[in-house]
Design a protein around this nucleic acid. Sequence first.
DNA 1: AATGAATGAGAATTCATTCAT
DNA 2: TATGAATGAATTCTCATTCAT
Lengths: 205, 205, 205, 205
Amino acid sequence: MLKKLTQEQQDAILERAIEEFGKNGPERAAISQIARRSGVSVGVIYKYYDNKEALFDHCLKHSIKLLTRVMNEAVSGEDDLWRACEKLIRACISFSKEHAPYIQMYHAITGSREDAGKYAAAIESVTASTYIQLIEKARQEKAVRKDLDPALCAMFFDNLLMMLHFSYGCEYYRERMNIYCGRQMDSEDYATEQMMAFLRGALSS
Amino acid sequence: MLKKLTQEQQDAILERAIEEFGKNGPERAAISQIARRSGVSVGVIYKYYDNKEALFDHCLKHSIKLLTRVMNEAVSGEDDLWRACEKLIRACISFSKEHAPYIQMYHAITGSREDAGKYAAAIESVTASTYIQLIEKARQEKAVRKDLDPALCAMFFDNLLMMLHFSYGCEYYRERMNIYCGRQMDSEDYATEQMMAFLRGALSS
Amino acid sequence: MLKKLTQEQQDAILERAIEEFGKNGPERAAISQIARRSGVSVGVIYKYYDNKEALFDHCLKHSIKLLTRVMNEAVSGEDDLWRACEKLIRACISFSKEHAPYIQMYHAITGSREDAGKYAAAIESVTASTYIQLIEKARQEKAVRKDLDPALCAMFFDNLLMMLHFSYGCEYYRERMNIYCGRQMDSEDYATEQMMAFLRGALSS
Amino acid sequence: MLKKLTQEQQDAILERAIEEFGKNGPERAAISQIARRSGVSVGVIYKYYDNKEALFDHCLKHSIKLLTRVMNEAVSGEDDLWRACEKLIRACISFSKEHAPYIQMYHAITGSREDAGKYAAAIESVTASTYIQLIEKARQEKAVRKDLDPALCAMFFDNLLMMLHFSYGCEYYRERMNIYCGRQMDSEDYATEQMMAFLRGALSS
DNA sequence: AATGAATGAGAATTCATTCAT
DNA sequence: TATGAATGAATTCTCATTCAT
């Protein structure tokens, strides 16, 4: 096929690449696989991306952008901590169910060693300050206990969210979740309710 | 297993392999490096292990065995939930600081692979039931609130421990921890205290 | 040849191709570069030339044609050997300075290829017989010594001219010239004078 | 074959590489060809050389070392210019006849563009100063005319030697020599004698 | 039995050539 | 007809695995 790639095909490359990178990690992922699966030639990938690294970076940015957008939309305009938490939890679960490969990519970078710092800064900074502010505000309004460091709280909270992402997006963690509680977490409502209860207890003054 | 290498040499192979796999990931880790660093020839590694995958698997099992042992020893014979928690947190931090490569191996298995499920069962089952039982007991003794599902609580708790492991053992998570709270978590006491406070709040009736 | 491109465009392709081939060699020269620089599409180059090889061949022929024309014009109608020599030397220097890429093409053909012989016949025959005749005539007029074979003399003379071409047209030889005599050869007059003195000594009876 | 390469095999790689580089130039030469022709695997070449560039460099150094050694030996201890010249001419012819691929390599680099300067300096410097000194000495002894610049003379002389190398080592130049004088130059004695006569005329005072 | 050099399949990347528009 | 994006063969280089010594 020698006609210009449609937007669908370009998107396909990105999706297949995210799947491949998510499944095999940045090293083992093979450009030729991605090409085959997206129904294009190897060459075309190099027309759109300088090299494997660049494709990986774009996949990463794409995944993280979407993930962050969804999470941000969940809290934006929400000034009540508990409502924010609930929305975040729900966003987290539905996003991960829907976009497992994105979560797998996310997991894959967290295993990267070389550029870990670079990636962590790019990915976590915004979320971190959002959560810290949210908690600090609630703390000033006496909704959150004073004996906890807001930064640590925010991290513990995000730790739980991250694990929630993995639990719905990555095979290992999904299986692990089954080991802990069978299919109970399949119910988004139940999972949300329980996690909210846990968090309220942890944070409330 | 043939019996020509001393136990020390076999251990050396395993340790160096875990370091190499931890540092470079299963793909980039080079058998020749492992051989060189453990002072044996490449050939001898292939006498003991069918292939790279088999060596990786053994490293995995070894890492998990040690990790689980340390965590189990931390709680064994401890029937007070809070003391158990504190011991687990401290064990988690010091183990991860000391044996980062083991944690990196652990993280590596959780990356999605076809056999993720198989590994999850082998690794998480014991811990899961230990934590669940611990919490159920405390619940019956009214130390833990009734509105929370013990299985979910146990999982949330283990989620936090797992993230703690990664935060001290994996580059990405370490950087992420810095983003959240600078070097505050360097102090094991402070980290433990804060996490205990968080957990007590979450679980106490 | 199809007739849609203007003569200017065809010339542009040729010139840009010669530059590109001269600069990067036949292997590294990129058709897409040549197309871009001559303001046509890649496709159109393939309308005019079967493949890269054919374009290279045409460039070669074109370069040689121009080079031979210039050298021929320098001697045509000149029946005095020494005046002819001087004109050839000056033509050689100014042409090479002006059209370095053509000289690089010339050098490229002389690189061993299967069809080297074919090219040599096409390129060198006319020059050879011109120089031989010129020398033979001067010899009969007692201007050139009798103990030298006119054919060999002609070749030695052309050897010097060829090296002069390269010295002004090819990077390596330019650098080599600097090693021998700094920037002295930058002066066309000085170079001509010295080479004339050398030749007169060599040939004069 | 899994046994360590013999010296012969290592030499074979070098010879085959020189042939391949000489025939096709550094770009088009294929490592896989060199491997096949020397009867080793591709991998072994990369065991001995970091990359294609390194192999090329080694071939170059090897060729140039041998060429320079032969040429140096020809003049060493010879303080009479004319005897030195004759020896150089003879060395030049017999070396080029014997080691055509080395000469082809030499020709190949002179077509290189990127590192032309680096190569020229490495290859030509010693020869240049040797020839210049030889001529200057003869000049002081009144054997060489005063009106010629020794540096330029040396270059003209080396120009003739270089062309002699090419004429016996490279297809194109060999054919060109035939065009000029048939098979006359096949006789080393005749070629030497004629060139000596040419040079004596050019240089003698 | 241990060694470690050789093997060669496999992955990234390039770019001459084609052909749908 | 001209365009220039897509194709895919070819090349460099790596490293898990083998096996002669």
